[in-house]
Structure formats: structure tokens, C-alpha cells
């Protein structure tokens, strides 16, 4: 127990951060290089104003027709993404670790809020799972990897919930919680989870095309 704790909060945590940071950096760099070599036109048509206009419409709930005609998905996906980011960054138990290790701290969520947001993430993952299984068009697109990613994302929240509520075996579960969080971070650069970083670019580009050339809305 003590060995595992030391390893997964020590060396392995550093490996995780390095893989996450350098993996993401590498992924960005390789896309950037390829774009410069092969898609120089992309830079030509990128337009900050139209890119931001498009991004703004798509990060506001129901800002696009696509979101309006899929209300359930829109509500769930916004609650999910907000909770997914806010919870791990601002839950007290994590902030105190930042304080202990790096002597920095910031705003913390009350436990009840964090607990609710955790449930939102878990519930959303179940909703996504339901969509993947139940909706024929989504099922057709779904690969085994999509289930794995869903699992990778849900795991830190399920285990976190378990640990917080001290269900049986929570001490071991804490170690699993730490590992699952590390797996998620490490998976970001190498899986479709990287969409979080690519969103502003793909959205921004189509927004630039629609705004600058097509003179039309893209939402």
C-alpha cells in the first residue's frame, strides 16, 4: 500500500505529466509542421475575427441550430464538459495536494458541489454509452476504442466518488483513483481525447472559411 502510494504519487505522476505535456506538444508540433508543408492555404484563410465568432457560437449552449435540434445532447454535453474540467481542478482534496507539493492554491469547490458534478460526469458517460449502443447512427460509427475512451474518462470520477464516500475498500480505491487519473492524462495526446485541443483550430478554420469566403453563418 505505502509502496504503491509512493510510486503512483511520485515517479509515475512525473512520468504522467511529462507524457501529457510532451505528448501534446509533439502532437501539436507534428500537425503544425504538416500543415505548414501541405496546407499552407489554411493559414492564408484563417481569420481571427471569424474564427472567434464561430467558436463563440459553439461554446454557448444552444448557440447553433445543431444544438437546438439535439437538446438532450446539448444539455448533457455542456454539463459534462464543464464538470469534467472544473471538478478535478477545484475539488478541495486536489487543491490541497497542489498546496502540499507546489505551494500554490486557488479557489475550491464545496464538497457537495464537487460531489454533484462528479455525478454529472458519471451520468453523462452513461448517457453517451446509451447513445453509442442505442442510436443506430452513433452505433455505426462507434469503435471499441470509443468505449475504452469513455471508460478512461469515467474511471477517475467513479473511483473518486467511491473514495469520497468511503465505500468498502476505499483505501485501495484511492490508489486506483490516482492511477485512473494518470491514465486519462496520458491518453489525451494519443487518443481522440485530443479533440479538446484541436477544437479551436477546426472550429476556427471552418468559421474563417464561412465568414471570410462564404460570407455565411456556420452555426
Amino acid at each position: 500500500m505505502h509502496d504503491y502510494y509512493s510510486f503512483f504519487t511520485g515517479p509515475f505522476a512525473w512520468i504522467t505529466f511529462l507524457v501529457f505535456i510532451f505528448g501534446s506538444g509533439w502532437r501539436f508540433y507534428s500537425i503544425w509542421q504538416l500543415a505548414k508543408k501541405k496546407d499552407s492555404a489554411v493559414f492564408e484563410y484563417m481569420n481571427m475575427k471569424f474564427a472567434l465568432r464561430s467558436i463563440a457560437h459553439w461554446i454557448i449552449p444552444f448557440g447553433s441550430r445543431s444544438m437546438q435540434i439535439n437538446p438532450a445532447m446539448t444539455v448533457v454535453t455542456f454539463m459534462f464538459h464543464i464538470s469534467l474540467f472544473i471538478t478535478p481542478l477545484f475539488v478541495f482534496g486536489h487543491v490541497v495536494l497542489w498546496k502540499e507539493n507546489f505551494n500554490i492554491s486557488w479557489f475550491t469547490l464545496s464538497n457537495t458541489v464537487a460531489d454533484l458534478m462528479t455525478l454529472i460526469v458519471i451520468g453523462s458517460c452513461l448517457f453517451f454509452l446509451w447513445r453509442r449502443i442505442k442510436l443506430a447512427d452513433v452505433r455505426y460509427l462507434t469503435t471499441p476504442m470509443d468505449f475504452i475512451i469513455l471508460f478512461i474518462v469515467a474511471a477517475p470520477f467513479v473511483t473518486g466518488f467511491w473514495v469520497y464516500h468511503q465505500f468498502p475498500g476505499f483505501a485501495v480505491m484511492t490508489i486506483i483513483h490516482i492511477i485512473s487519473g494518470e491514465i486519462m492524462l496520458m491518453a489525451i495526446p494519443f487518443t481522440k481525447l485530443f479533440h479538446m485541443f484541436l477544437f479551436p483550430f477546426t472550429r476556427g478554420y471552418i468559421g474563417s472559411e464561412f465568414g471570410g469566403v462564404r460570407m455565411a453563418k456556420d452555426w
Binding site: A35, K38, V42, L141, D146, K192, F194, T202
Partner: peptide, 13 residues
């Protein structure tokens, strides 16, 4: 190049 790659790789199905 990057455009095709990003389009195919970013799609979250």
C-alpha cells in the same frame, strides 16, 4: 496533409 488528418482524427463519432 494536416487538414485531412485532423478531420479524420478529431471526429469523436
Amino acid at each position: 496533409g494536416a487538414r485531412l488528418k485532423v478531420y479524420v482524427e478529431t471526429c469523436v463519432h
